[in-house]
């Protein structure tokens, strides 16, 4: 076996793999033809093999979540203690947690009681339960935000999804959220009927319109770091924050990945030359 055959083996392997993948990657929402428009791609700080969090952005995004989204959207799986990822000190995390009221108990008298949140608590839900959430929102429960950035992935289409393997595109979720949040306000085409109580948005994954009205407007959230207080900036920041909420280990994963891949590359080349040496000792 020579180098050529090894290379062709690897090429064949990757081809076979990408062909196989080709069949799987684009499965979601193939039937419906939604979203009407592909998500707009944002240049995220956490994209690519060396991606890292932009902590200032995460803090801004958290502020947007807290002041706007959290009115309706829960974030059940995220604990206050993990907010130190955003660059907050222990005291700051404690202060943030204590701003929330958490139901605890039962106490010695058997009563449930409310106390200020602690870092070990999870974000409390804005509604008592799903029934209450549905009742307050015309029957549609606002989705939980813990995993939303990974739970929405509009189809990439052929052949883009093959190139995605090489370009390491994995920001489908935050791109989608950003596009949805900035996608309101367009006039729907005449061919599309928008039912009452829904709002046209060509980036929505499951139809031409969704039950949520445009949530963000210019100047709604005050930024103290001088970032523009625009819908575009808010949307970017909150999308980045939601990506962190969905995959808090993302940066750790990529950093370990670099070490692992580097090790494997060096190990592979050592093995290649060892193999060559071993086989060269063979007389026909």
């Amino acid at each position: 076996m020579n180098l050529k055959s090894i290379l062709s083996g690897i090429a064949g392997l990757s081809l076979a793999c990408s062909l196989a993948v080709a069949t799987g990657a684009g499965s979601a929402e193939a039937a419906s033809g939604y979203p009407l428009k592909k998500p707009r791609e944002v240049d995220w700080s956490f994209a690519g093999p060396f991606g890292t969090w932009d902590k200032a952005q995460l803090q801004r995004g958290f502020k947007v979540y807290r002041e706007i989204c959290a009115a309706c959207h829960s974030m059940d799986l995220v604990a206050f203690r993990t907010l130190d990822d955003l660059g907050y000190s222990d005291e700051q995390v404690q202060a943030i947690a204590s701003e929330y009221d958490v139901t605890d108990g039962p106490n010695e008298e058997g009563e449930m009681f409310t106390r200020p949140g602690r870092p070990t608590d999870y974000f409390p839900s804005p509604y008592e339960n799903d029934k209450a959430a549905a009742y307050a929102n015309n029957g549609a429960v606002p989705p939980d935000f813990s995993l939303i950035a990974k739970a929405r992935a509009p189809e990439r289409g052929f052949p883009t999804f093959i190139f995605d393997v090489l370009t390491l595109y994995a920001e489908n979720g935050p791109d989608y959220i950003y596009s949805l949040l900035t996608g309101y306000g367009e006039e729907p085409p005449e061919s599309i009927e928008i039912s009452d109580g829904t709002y046209y948005n060509p980036y929505f994954i499951a139809g031409p319109a969704l039950a949520m009205a445009q949530p963000l407007y210019e100047g709604m959230v005050t930024y103290d770091d001088g970032s523009p207080e625009t819908v575009d900036q808010y949307s970017k920041d909150v999308s980045a924050f939601l990506m962190w909420a969905a995959e808090p280990m993302l940066v750790e994963r990529k950093q370990m990945g670099f070490n692992v891949m580097l090790f494997l590359l060096i190990f592979a080349s050592l093995l290649y030359f060892t193999k060559k040496k071993v086989w060269s000792g063979l007389k026909d």
Binding site: G24, A28, A151, A153, D164, A170, G173, G257, L264, A268
Partner: peptide
């Protein structure tokens, strides 16, 4: 080890690529 490079590529950089968002 060559195969592990491919494996690692997905594990570390495209962990959800082969899965389903739903």
């Amino acid at each position: 080890v060559c195969f592990f490079l491919l494996y690692g590529w997905f594990v570390f950089y495209l962990p959800d690529y082969l899965g389903h968002a739903d």
